[in-house]
Design a protein around this nucleic acid. Structure first.
Lengths: 162, 162
DNA sequence: GAAGATTGAGCACTCAATCTTG
DNA sequence: CAAGATTGAGTGCTCAATCTTC
């Protein structure tokens, strides 16, 4: 196969491969730093940070799975481990009045809230250090616009009956 | 935790979260399409496409692992499975003259070359469909520049003794 | 019967230890 | 003993099947 046999322009190839490599490397760094410095797997961080911004009652397993981009069964087991670590709790609707008793809500424990409040600024600083600080205002806007356009087209395709 | 307690501007947050979500969704789609339509896991595709562009002798395990961004042990097992499937071969340096006999080179079989030549244009078309077609020339250049800048800073940090 | 969540089985990755060669 | 590759042990994800509730 010759390198020239491609459907892409050089610019398109550079963009796509650049994005893949950049996100992979930045995420690798963020993940390693959090694991080593904060003792926290990045997947746990994702759950904690979404719960920290959740409404009073927490999120259902479904909502939370969508937010952290994980399968339902994957989240069940992740939450199991985080409960063992004392960071979150399950709340079945047993004592909640007139709520759908199928849904399980997940909420932070005190320890979980303390941990995420300590770690979140550290993580944000690292994202700034590895990524955000190298972008201009113009680039921020350009990238955000492109991402939102792509995401919106993708979600439209999910519903073929439009 | 109040939503306002953040070290980031709204624009920065939108960029970072947008990129994560966009790349995750696009990759999910590409992966599902390749699995369903071509019967090929995306990790296998990555290996095949790098070998298709390799020099005559193929790549060493080390080189290939770096290119597909995988650990050495992960690649060993992936190559095992791809050999079972008849797509690649290991070439120890036994018969090669005066070459380091520790390195193992990986090369495509005929079946592997046929497969990647069939699948590569399909994949490229899907990347265009889900992602590239929605970007302007300006955005392509902007994103590429930003990615390359971030990657270059990251690789500089890897060598503290400069 | 459909929806929310969990469980079972299987797969593919990682780090650390080992084997071989330089 | 350093470097390339593989093996062992463990982790954490996925899809499909199951249980409970609507």
């Amino acid at each position: 196969m010759q390198p020239s046999e491609t459907l892409w322009s050089a610019a398109e190839k550079d963009t796509w491969l650049g994005l893949i490599r950049m996100m992979s490397q930045v995420n690798r760094r963020l993940s390693a730093d959090m694991e080593q410095q904060d003792g926290l797997p990045i997947a746990w961080y994702d759950v904690l940070v979404h719960l920290a911004l959740a409404p009073e009652a927490g999120w259902s397993m479904q909502d939370l799975a969508a937010q952290v981009m994980m399968s339902g069964s994957g989240l069940t087991r992740l939450v199991d481990r985080m409960i063992d670590a004392g960071l979150v709790q399950r709340q079945r609707a047993d004592e909640r009045q007139a709520e759908d008793r199928r849904v399980v809500r997940v909420v932070l424990t005190e320890a979980g809230r303390t941990l995420i409040e300590r770690v979140r600024p550290l993580h944000q600083q690292r994202v700034r250090h590895y990524f955000l600080q190298h972008l201009s205002e113009t680039e921020l806007g350009c990238i955000t616009g492109a991402c939102e356009r792509v995401l919106s087209k993708l979600s439209q395709e999910d519903m073929p009956h439009v």
